[in-house]
């Protein structure tokens, strides 16, 4: 599946809920299902600035694709991180860099998270793209 197809899939899943509690319950479930991040990566180096709750994001690059592991101390945030990982993990740096992320708006996350939260979400996306840019540069310099 392409990044675009995964985004469509997520939009479809969220469209099943017309109230916020349903959407939040889904995010909470997604957060709970997120694979555990090794505590040794829960350091300042992997902490994302700009989020009011703590989010740690750890990237791994195998030379062709990037995978992400993450955690958050807040469960709804963790659910949002889980969605981002589903979209971006296992993709090439180029795919990540050029991805147009529209599912966030479509499922109403951006409008309905408080502005500081929305900024947190943008910080997460920015950090994911920055890692991809760094890995791409690493490949080109080989």
């Amino acid at each position: 599946m392409t990044i675009e197809q995964i985004q469509e899939e997520i939009i479809e899943e969220f469209s099943a809920f017309d109230d916020w509690m349903g959407k939040y319950n889904l995010l909470i479930d997604l957060g709970r299902e997120l694979p555990v991040l090794d505590p040794k990566f829960k350091t300042r180096d992997f902490l994302i600035e700009g989020c009011q709750s703590k989010v740690w994001l750890y990237p791994e690059f195998n030379g062709s694709t990037v995978s992400f592991k993450a955690d958050s101390d807040a469960l709804i945030t963790k659910g949002i991180v889980a969605l981002l990982i589903r979209v971006f993990s296992g993709r090439s740096p180029e795919e990540i860099i050029s991805a147009d992320l529209h599912f966030i708006d479509k499922i109403g996350l951006r409008q309905n998270l408080s502005p500081t939260r929305a900024n947190g979400l943008l910080s997460m996306v920015r950090q994911i793209k920055l890692y991809a840019i760094a890995f791409k540069a690493k490949n080109t310099n080989k």
Binding site: Y24, L75, I76, T77, S114
Partner: peptide
């Protein structure tokens, strides 16, 4: 066991405005 933002966000959706942080 529940993060303050999780609490605040759900209360908000119930119409209850509180501050967290």
């Amino acid at each position: 066991g529940i993060h303050m933002y999780d609490t605040g966000m759900v209360l908000d959706k119930l119409g209850i405005a509180v501050r967290t942080g």
